[in-house]
Design a protein around this nucleic acid. Structure first.
Lengths: 369, 369
DNA sequence: AACGAAAATGTGAGCGATAACATCATCAAA
DNA sequence: TTTGATGATGTTATCGCTCACATTTTCGTT
């Protein structure tokens, strides 16, 4: 039987029911959750031996270990994490700070991390009320007070990274989705490579050039994608149109789309995320410009719905699960060994669907040159 | 490899560096974080007075309080949560269990709760690896070991609710998004009311009847929405078509849409979430049936993108922020007073956009009757 | 047999906070 | 002025666990 009958309501700390017997002994109170001494007594060993069994120390005779385990089972004993943390100074708890878990990317990252931490760590979350240094420090402070073993920050914005530089350096910390410039351990998808692939793809389809709807310039991911787009343009000798930018929302994509729809020379657009691409496509459609016949659109993220947009969206997929695993791995390494300063990059995957096609009357680039 | 007794890597209590002066005194170690005794010494008071200041006890002279606060500031002292938890048996930590934070609803709920808990509570998260009783108990167990003050469960599925009934009853627990049947405190949006509104709206537009694409029947929300749909149909005397159902995904909506597109008598569809509506609309469009001219579609959730679907989606909005706040409030009440058994319902909001219209050649119901 | 090394176990001292109680200070009422 | 009731502060005892060290086995040697 896994869970044996639970004691009736535990009297908590203040209860007058706190009956204690002797200094050394275990109070016979029935409502009290069992402690190590209870287990020791039942197993006929010392509390230290129980501790050894719990912590997988080698020097315990199999027979003894068995006795202890049986007692633990019988009492439904569970070690008290606070007591353990008090002496070891390790809580097996990780803090995750995120800026806005409403957005797809951050939400998925969080999920990925949590999934990866499932075994061996608790995950504490906090979202930043604002992006300034102060709230970042406050949040880290809260975590510090809770003695987290390490912190993962999902705040891919320049200001967040700046705020991070004021965090006590002895706290293991990993940033996800951050540019390489910062002097801290970071894990991110290779945004520039993804953007380059998307842009090259459009160019390869025969588009004269590719327009780009960037994310907010305060976001490092947005900047990197813009860099990748620019690099691909340059490398192909294509003219660089003026930069357009949105705020990740469908609304901003829609507004940009309305502007772009009026310009017949626009035949290929790379959006910095899928949501803006959705808005853009709607604006284009409303203006009578068909996607992909008149205008090709490529997104970034590969949200689960993007395969069901009208038309299905060609986009760049980020593997958030992998990102989470890597971030956790890096953090655990830092906690264990104190190593620092890596910048891990996870390659994105290009997903071809139906929102991009050769421009009307164009020849494929490779065939043409 | 088993953990060796002393690990040189971490700056904790380890090493021989733990120089302590006297029993009462504070070790002069410079790298050690300050403890209450350090503050007491600096302020020239006893540690208990420091504790009083920290806990807002009334009986401290303003002057003394000021001295202590100054010392705290000067040392950048932060109380040790583990030590405090050990004696008070309260961690100010809440556990949130969710089934799949990849889905929009659960993700938003989590965010709402976290937002609401910002002040005063830490939030520990865990997602259920599976839906059986065992993993639910294991997860609760992990939280119990961490001494969380209470638990919020986001698992609006029948099996999850069933598993919940085995949780020790002395742990304050609130379920969000769960039907009223279970004998536990729950907070949820009024799914039935939302579905009723949506269905009535379609009926009011003149549709002969309304088809319904339900979510998985294992989800309570899905069932409640189906109930609401059915009630509205009955109350209007409309025929009840056979029930269709999906798995919340756009793909399942798409597949359902393909079937529905072949049947000309289908003019109004209520989908149990926006994502399925998206897939449905795509299938309809591909089959040449225009939305809303030929078929009207209404969703549920109001995801941020739904205003940018083609056409913009008429849907039922859930206020996840409010839901989170209510859930937290209910939990805090339970922790404080032990009150139980409420079933809070948050009313949804109907959002009219462009995906529903009167059927071709129909008269508005009110005008017709 | 005798002995010492290694394995197995026990003992006492904290970790850093709060709770309960003891003590001293202060002040209004007798 | 004395006195008792508070108010403000200090002292001591835990909370439940792990660490360092002491002690007792258990063996393989010579």
């Amino acid at each position: 039987m896994a869970s044996s009958p639970r004691n009736p309501g535990w009297p908590g700390p203040g209860g007058q029911a706190r009956v204690k017997a002797a200094t050394t002994g275990r109070p016979p109170g029935p409502g009290r959750p069992p402690v190590m001494a209870d287990v020791a007594q039942l197993a006929g060993v010392s509390h230290q031996t129980v501790s050894r069994v719990l912590n997988d120390h080698p020097n315990v005779r199999p027979h003894t270990r068995e006795k202890v385990l049986e007692a633990i089972r019988q009492l439904a004993y569970r070690p008290n994490a606070a007591a353990r943390a008090l002496v070891t100074r390790r809580t097996h708890t990780l803090g995750v700070i995120s800026i806005d878990s409403t957005l797809y990317g951050p939400a998925m990252m969080l999920h990925g991390i949590e999934r990866a931490a499932q075994h061996g760590h608790f995950v504490l979350i906090a979202s930043l009320p604002a992006l300034d240094r102060r709230s970042m420090l406050d949040t880290v402070d809260r975590f510090l007070g809770h003695s987290v073993d390490g912190i993962i920050v999902i705040a891919p914005q320049t200001s967040a990274v700046a705020a991070l530089s004021h965090v006590p350096s002895d706290m293991p910390l990993v940033a996800v989705g951050c540019g390489t410039r910062a002097p801290l351990t970071s894990v991110a998808v290779d945004n520039a490579a993804g953007a380059r692939t998307a842009t090259r793809y459009l160019l390869g389809l025969g588009h004269h050039t590719v327009y780009h709807v960037a994310g907010p310039s305060s976001w490092l991911d947005a900047r990197e994608r813009t860099d990748g787009w620019r690099a691909a343009l340059r490398e192909a000798g294509a003219p660089e149109p003026e930069l357009l930018s949105g705020d990740w929302s469908a609304r901003s994509g829609y507004e940009t789309g309305q502007k772009l729809a009026r310009r017949p020379e626009v035949t290929g657009v790379f959006c910095s995320n899928d949501t803006m691409a959705l808005g853009l496509i709607r604006a284009l459609s409303e203006a009578g410009r068909r996607v992909p016949e008149d205008v090709s659109v490529v997104g970034f993220d590969d949200v689960p719905e993007s395969g069901y947009f009208l038309p299905p969206l060609t986009t760049v997929r980020q593997d958030f699960g992998e990102l989470g695993r890597r971030a956790l791995g890096a953090l655990v390494d830092r906690i264990a060994s104190g190593a620092a300063g890596e910048h891990l990059r996870v390659p994105p995957e290009f997903v071809v669907r139906a929102s991009a096609a050769p421009p009307a009357g164009a020849v494929l680039r490779q065939a043409g040159s």
